[in-house]
Amino acid sequence: MPPDHVLDDYVDPYDDPAARGHRHGPLRVGLGGPVGSGKTALAAALCRTLGQEYDLAVVTNDIYTTEDADFLRRNAVLPDDRIEAVQTGCCPHTAIRDDITANLDAVELLEGRHPGLELVLVESGGDNLTASFSYGLVDVQIFVVDVAGGDKVPRKGGPGVTASDLLVVNKTDLAPLVGADLDVMRRDSAAVRAGKPTFLISLREDPAATEVADWVRAQVRARVAAHA
């Protein structure tokens, strides 16, 4: 039976997966952020670093083409049957927040194909600072911005910056070139994120995304412990 027939959700109509974390299946991690900030590169890095430890798969929300999925196939050493691309009907934020059907279908397809799945990365299509994932779709979400977008981005806020479970400021190697002050970004992030973590990283200098991978490991452990 497909997953949507196995879940006994109709027993309690007010039982909200977003409020309690998904009972079944793998940890779902959302990867969001503006166009060009490095979401796909981070997804590829996490696949390379964590792919040997966890049974993992990726859902991409390409805006127009299968470019991100193709990039992952080339760079993430992930077999084709572990990558699903969904079409977002010109509205990438709708597909991850307002009507998550297509993404749920993709996650359930991957779960059905790989019953031992432990981790699913859901990469959003590039959008703007207001886009965030519904917790009906993911358990935790990472928002990726980059230094080249200007050091004002954390101060400007928006749901992705303020409410994501992890904020990643990518491309720190470009800071001197674009005149961005990393201390300002670190301080502004801390001010709006109420204690939630922010990592300043450079995937060029650390292609393994060590710090982010460690954070994801901790999330998997926490989930396993919570469901034990």
């Binding site: 949507d4 027939h5 109709y10 027993v11 297509a102």
Partner: peptide, 24 residues
């Protein structure tokens, strides 16, 4: 695909055993 999506939301919005009588 759209039928499946509607079942997903419908069975929680209007719980009823008849949903189980539909094909997968």
């Amino acid at each position: 695909q759209q039928g499946r999506g509607l079942v997903r939301v419908g069975r929680r919005a209007w719980p009823d055993p008849v949903w189980d009588d539909l094909p997968a």
